[in-house]
Amino acid sequence: MQFECPHWTSRDSDFIPPRRRRDIIENELDGEATLFDPHNGNTYQLNQTSYVIWRQCDGRTTMREIAKCVTASFKVDVDTASDHVEQLVARLAESRLLELSEYYPLVHS
C-alpha cells in the first residue's frame, strides 16, 4: 500500500497532537534512543532533539506545543523548532511509527 507523507500547514501544527505507537520498543541511550518496530523488525535511531520530540508525541500535546518544548530545551527560535518538529513528525509518520488515524484525515480534509 502506498503511503503519502503528510505535508503539514502551519495551521495543522496548532491542533495536531501526534501519538507514538504504543508497541514501538524504545531504548534510551545517553539522551538519544533507538526505536524498534516489532511489525517489520526495522530499527531507527533518534538523536537528542528527535528523542525529546518523540517522547512528547503522546496524543495530547500538539506540534506547536512540542515545538515550544524544543525551544526551551535546545535554545532555538520557535520557527526553527516548528520546522524541525513538523519534519520529524512527517518522517515518523512515513515510517508508520505514529498512530495517525485520529488526526490524519483532518490534515487531508
Binding site: 520498543i25 541511550l29 545517553d30 524498534f36 530499527t43 535511531q45
Partner: peptide, 29 residues
Amino acid sequence: LSRAQAAFSLAKYVMNSGTFGNRSASLLA
C-alpha cells in the same frame, strides 16, 4: 559514535534476530 548510533548500526549485523524477536533491540542497547 554515540551509543544510540552504535546500537542502530549493530542491529544491521545481528544474524539471528528472529530468535530474539522484540528482545533483540533491547539486548543491543
